[in-house]
Design a protein around this nucleic acid. Structure first.
Length: 553
RNA sequence: UGCGGAUUUGUGUAAUGGUAGCACGAAUGACUCUGGAUCAUUUUGUGAGGGUUCAAAUCCUUCAUCCGCAGCCA
């Protein structure tokens, strides 16, 4: 992987600024990881791996009011699943709270931090605006002793939440708002999932993050673009506290995907308000959702490689993600026959009661995958959409008096159509050519179409869920005045088919197996809802469908 | 009117003064027991102006446009 960060690493190594690359992935445990995090993980771990370094997993748990162990657990599971290993380097910002506290005292002693009594609203007023400088807080020039005393009392819980904060004394007139005496600590009487009730003051991100990096001797602290403005502050804390090996922050553009929302806040809302069935709903862009959908870790890593790393704001076409999973599954997924919307076919000249077992290759892309036996009989199901009564010229499947090949079985010809009272085709009567066993006729005649089939008496019933994009527009946030991203939700993002008929081998399917339902797409067993007596399959992604394009014209 | 970034084909990303390339998408054709896959071909691009240079996406300069920043969130 080559990109501007690798260039920086190359030059740092060459100039001996660092000897070993050390990065970190620092999620806040306040939500599930999504495909955007996968990009960050691939960069953080990938850059280290690629340069003989290491990468830490570190929970940035400085705000207990939003965090939860549920997320701590899921994040570890997802990072592991994606294929990365932090070995013994699992850390928590909360493990450093004592150190942070002592560093803060040091800054106070040096006159570089002070306790402020201004309210949150007053602080905002005093901060000034984008174009106007702020003004000093009246509490800015308290004595060191008073600050020390007050800060200790803050720690000891002697003040109400929000009554005071500790601020860095930098420059209220700085053109960079982040440098206008940023808050370092706030009083927050919330139980922490790791430190319990020990603390009632918690450090802010801007203060904690550079220290976390420095303590862990991170060399390259990689984050997203919105922290560019914070870098001077990051450097200020590093410099004023003083570290032998100062870490440096570099920023890259976060991932955006068409038809996809990446905001944790909005994903949480979709979960909480029931627009989706949990964080691992197969329509969610979460890693747990993608996993349940049938995406493999390697396909996601491949995707992250392909999108690159840059500082340009960008929106990646979700077709690239789909390409990556198809590309992999095409080579690895066994082919099976499944009929999603069944149409009964009776082969009238086929002996009643006869069953033949036909050899079918498991994967034409991988001959070593071998073959399996699939039962064939007089009555079969084919896909409804594989028959058309008034077929256009370019329709190569079954039509009245037309001949089609049943995959690895026989040529059949449509002789008769049976309809119900509504005029709906409910059954086809066909004849077969016994000489075409296996799928080829000795007379060499060609048939244009080949379709999949399932023997009725051997068929396995299943529910199949066909997923589509969760949003119906490329940019879900693009809403008219007064609108909401939820207005863009795709009401047809899942199509549940309950009468699907599968070839018998699918009874043995296990969670984690990927299959290609021939001509339909890639599918996997649903890890939550599928039961031996009620199989449920999820469509990971459809096959490219050039017929749909022709038909659409 | 402040500060920090960004701008290369439909999308993403290379080229670091020397042939604007790659991938996805799209289109066309070939092939095929998956209308899948595969193969071949094609299409469109350096935001604008000025300057330096034998030579500029790249250096200088002016401008334009877009993104982010005024949490006691991260």
């Amino acid at each position: 992987m080559s990109n501007f960060i690798q260039d920086i690493i190359d030059s740092d190594l060459k100039e001996s600024k660092v000897t070993k690359i050390h990065t970190r992935f620092p999620p806040e445990p306040n939500g599930y990881l999504h495909i955007g995090h996968a990009k960050a993980i691939c960069i953080d771990f990938g850059m280290a791996l690629q340069n003989g370094g290491v990468c830490n997993l570190r929970f940035d748990d400085t705000n207990p009011s939003k965090e939860d162990v549920e997320y701590v657990d899921s994040i570890q599971e997802d990072v592991k699943w994606l294929g990365f290993d932090w070995e013994d380097r699992l850390f928590y910002a909360s493990d450093y709270f004592d150190k942070f506290y002592n560093f803060a005292m040091k800054l106070i002693r040096e006159g570089k931090a002070y306790v402020d009594d201004l309210s949150a609203e007053q602080i905002r007023e005093y901060r000034g605006t984008l174009t106007q400088p702020g003004k000093d807080s009246p509490y800015r020039n308290r004595s060191v002793d008073e600050n020390l005393d007050l800060f200790e009392k803050m720690k000891n819980g002697e003040f109400e939440d929000g009554a005071k904060v500790l601020r860095a004394k930098i420059d209220m007139a700085s053109p960079n708002l982040n440098m206008r005496d940023p808050v370092m600590y706030r009083i927050l009487r919330a139980p922490h999932h790791r430190t319990g009730a020990k603390w009632c003051i918690y450090p802010m991100y801007d203060y904690a993050h550079p220290l976390e990096d420095a303590i862990e001797e991170i060399t390259h602290s990689l984050c997203s673009l919105e922290f560019e403005d914070h870098r001077p502050l990051y450097d200020w804390f590093i410099e004023n506290i003083g570290f032998d090996i100062p870490p440096h922050q570099y920023e890259f553009a976060r991932l955006n995907l068409t038809y996809t929302l990446m905001s944790k806040r909005k994903l949480l809302e979709l979960v909480e308000k029931g627009y989706v069935n949990g964080w691992n709903d197969p329509r969610m862009p979460t890693l747990s959702g993608l996993r349940r959908r049938g995406y493999t870790p390697s396909s996601i890593r491949e995707f992250c490689d392909r999108i690159g790393v840059a500082k340009t704001y960008s929106v990646v076409d979700i077709a690239l993600l789909e390409y990556c999973i198809r590309e992999e599954l095409n080579v690895t997924a066994p082919r099976v026959m499944a009929v999603l919307e069944p149409l009964k076919v009776v082969i009238e000249n086929y002996p009643e009661g006869q069953v033949e077992y036909l050899d079918v290759e498991n994967n034409p892309e991988d001959l070593s995958a071998g073959t399996r036996s699939v039962p064939f009989s007089r009555e079969i199901y084919i896909e409804k959409s594989d028959f058309m009564e008034d077929a256009p010229k370019k329709f190569f499947r079954l039509k009245p008096d037309g001949e089609v090949r049943l995959k690895n079985a026989y040529f059949i010809k449509c002789e008769k159509i049976i309809k119900n009272q509504d005029g709906e085709v409910i059954e086809l009567r066909c004849s077969y050519d016994p000489a075409s066993r296996g799928g080829n006729s000795p007379d060499g005649r060609k048939v244009k179409g080949t379709i999949q089939w399932v023997s009725i008496q051997h068929a396995v019933n299943a529910e199949v869920r066909l997923y589509d994009h969760l949003f119906k527009v490329e940019n879900p946030d693009d809403v008219p005045e007064g609108g909401d991203y939820k207005d863009n939700l795709n009401e047809n993002s899942v199509d549940v088919l309950k009468e699907c008929k599968l070839e018998p081998s699918l009874k043995e399917a296990k969670v984690g197996d990927n299959f290609q339902f021939m001509r339909m797409g890639y599918f996997c067993l649903d890890s939550i809802d599928s039961k031996p007596e009620h199989l449920v399959f999820n469509r990971t992604v459809g096959l490219k469908d050039s017929w749909a394009k022709i038909a659409g014209k």
